[in-house]
Nucleic acid binder design. Structure first.
Length: 563
RNA sequence: CGGGGCGUGGCGCAGCCUGGUAGCGCACCUGCUUUGGGAGCAGGGGGUCGGAGGUUCGAAUCCUCUCGCCCCGACCA
């Protein structure tokens, strides 16, 4: 590609509304442009990156027997009513000229299951893996960070159809294999982590996370362990408890409502306190969840333990059924108590609210002083242990996910088959997503420096940028034209900066765009008979190569060494 | 949905408080010079100041409403 003919609007200045690095550099390097909130155009160079990622995905999906198809973005709302997903707030809704209600698909479970339900009749038709690269529409409450969270985006979504759970395990394992290879080949640093099954429902899920500062999720990492903090479990540090007592005793704590205030008033470590978190479930049951004072309630875990959604209890509900807000505790109340496992490890000496104004209880012992159900409902923290090793927390972008759906969709949509015995069975499904745009964003975030992007070779817009210095008609330009043709004929993926611009501008743009290998051809090259090569990562000077008939082969060789 | 911020030429900004008919840098066009790190000189084009209404002799500036965008939180198959 000749740069003189390329639509590549590079910007010297940072866009005023951009925060995340991938957003700033995506715009400055001329890869993407915004049309509206969460609505982005991929400009030619950016689209090449996207397409390279798509190509890797297609190869690996085909390698596990996936079959590519394409389903509509616009769908009848009726279909979504059958699975109940028409109630999701993020679902874009519209109607056609006849007033028929339509939606923009946020994923394609309904559509693909609808078709499979009509087409698949027999166990002989299974298993199946179907996939597509198609737009998704989501009315996001808050699009952000450029291409990281948008209202419309291309997703690779695949769906597996099996006759039983054992079959699903096989399809799931195949996707793990394909996904590991896709992210590895894309050149990302990535983790496969255990994840929450969320509102999709299902029996198991993993997420693929690419660590980077702009990430919206936190992952807990230890050697051999990786999990989204939403579900991560680890051994807590020990609480600093005062001595046990034969029975609880009251201590005055006037005005001390927060953990900080109470621990200061009683001169105790926050970990000695029991933090009471009253919630009301969707079915209007009041439950008192309790974690250690220095721990935080994990809402994902709590929802999963409760088996339904919940909201924090109101002050009125707390006052009438437990005690004065700020001074509540589990002792002597008629409300069910859900106690975090981290508390159960140590027997006594806990401090809780006394359910009396301005008073806390010392020496409280779970079991002796109050009844409870035990569950893991806290969020892990930096320094908690997994197999004796402290975990660390890291921000990450979710670049892919895999779900075991089971019959969540096949049952409401009637996707079934006849087994060998002629018995009708529901198809067991899995669903699997990848966001190519997020792979691109993560690659930028993970590999940028002060000068710009440093793409992994596999997904760079071009592998090589040929920078020719010299004015039009000069011997340098003539030699550059010849070299460009030779590189193209050698099958290399080359961007040729043939613009009539100064060297500083060309170098700066090359570093901003971030092709892995830069070839410089100027007056010096003609004098010395060599080409200068620079690797984009770290802007490393590579060995010069002779400028002759073997140049293209030499470039190819050097390129093969680059990441 | 709660909180905060911002809309002035393609991009980044000043002007607004204290009303007088729009300016700077970059980019762009023409010519000449220049060509190994975002060049120089000269000339030039482009904005009804997000939109609507109001106050006023006069509104980018003051008032009201509205739309859009960004950030934090909530939310996020």
């Amino acid at each position: 590609m000749r740069m003189s003919q390329l639509l590549l609007p590079t910007e010297r200045e940072t866009p005023a509304d951009a925060q995340a690095l991938s957003h700033v550099l995506g715009v400055r390097a001329g890869l993407i442009r915004q049309l509206g909130a969460g609505l982005w155009t991929w400009l030619p160079a950016g689209w090449r990156v996207h397409q390279k990622i798509e190509a890797i995905i297609r190869e690996e999906m085909n390698a596990i027997g996936g079959q590519e198809l394409l389903m509509p973005l616009i769908q009848p709302r009726e279909l979504w009513k059958k699975t109940g997903r028409d109630q999701i707030d993020e679902l874009f809704s519209l109607s056609d000229r006849k007033g028929a209600e339509m939606v923009l698909a946020m994923t394609h479970e309904e559509a693909v299951t609808f078709h499979v339900s009509q087409i698949v009749r027999s166990y002989r038709d299974l298993p199946l893996i179907l996939y597509q690269l198609q737009l998704k529409g989501r009315d996001e409450p808050r699009p952000r960070a450029g291409v990281l969270r948008t209202r419309e985006f291309i997703m690779k979504d695949s769906y597996s159809f099996d006759r039983d759970d054992a079959g699903l395990e096989v399809s799931y394992a195949k996707h793990i294999e394909a996904y590991d290879r896709i992210f590895e080949r894309s050149g990302l640093e990535w983790y496969r982590v255990e994840s929450d099954v969320g509102v999709m429902g299902g029996s198991g899920a993993h997420e693929y996370m690419a660590p980077c500062p702009a990430g919206e999720n936190d992952v807990a990492l230890a050697p051999g362990y990786a999990a989204n903090v939403e579900v991560a479990s680890a051994e807590p540090s020990a609480a600093h408890l005062p001595p046990t007592q034969n029975e609880p005793s009251e201590a005055p704590t006037p005005g001390a409502k927060t953990i900080e205030q109470v621990s200061a008033a009683l001169d105790l470590h926050p970990s000695a306190l029991l933090k009471a978190f009253p919630v009301v479930t969707d079915s209007e049951k009041l439950v008192l969840a309790i974690v250690r004072g220095d721990h935080r309630v994990n809402e994902f875990k709590l929802r999963s333990v409760l088996g339904e959604g919940f909201r924090p209890a109101s002050d009125e509900e707390i006052s009438s059924q437990i005690g004065p807000p700020g001074f509540i505790g589990p002792v002597g109340i008629q409300v069910p108590v859900l106690l975090d496992s981290a508390v159960a490890g140590q027997p006594g000496g806990w401090v809780t609210g006394a359910n009396k104004l301005d008073i806390h209880l010392l020496g409280v012992e779970p079991g002796r002083d109050f009844q409870f159900d035990l569950a893991d409902i806290r969020s892990v923290e930096e320094g908690d242990l997994v197999d004796g090793t402290p975990i660390r927390l890291e921000a990450a972008i979710e670049v892919g996910n895999i779900f075991k759906l089971g019959t969540r969709y096949s049952e409401p949509l009637g996707a079934s088959f006849l087994d060998e015995d002629g018995a009708e069975q529901s198809i067991v499904m899995g669903s699997y997503g990848i966001g190519p745009a997020r792979i691109a964003a993560a690659a930028i975030e993970q590999n940028a420096d002060e000068s710009g992007i440093a793409w992994p070779k596999a997904i760079a817009p071009w592998e090589v940028e040929l920078v020719v210095l010299g004015k039009a008609g000069s011997a340098e330009v003539e030699a550059g034209e010849k070299l460009y043709v030779e590189l193209i004929e050698a099958g290399l993926d080359v961007l040729f900066d043939d613009r009539d611009a100064g060297p500083g501008e060309k170098f700066a743009d090359a570093e901003l765009l971030g092709c892995p290998l830069r070839i410089t051809l100027g007056k010096r090259s003609l004098e010395s008979g060599t080409l200068e090569l620079q690797g984009r990562r770290g802007l490393t000077e590579l060995a010069s190569i002779p400028l002759d008939d073997g140049s293209a082969a030499a470039v190819r060789e050097i390129l093969s060494q680059l990441p």
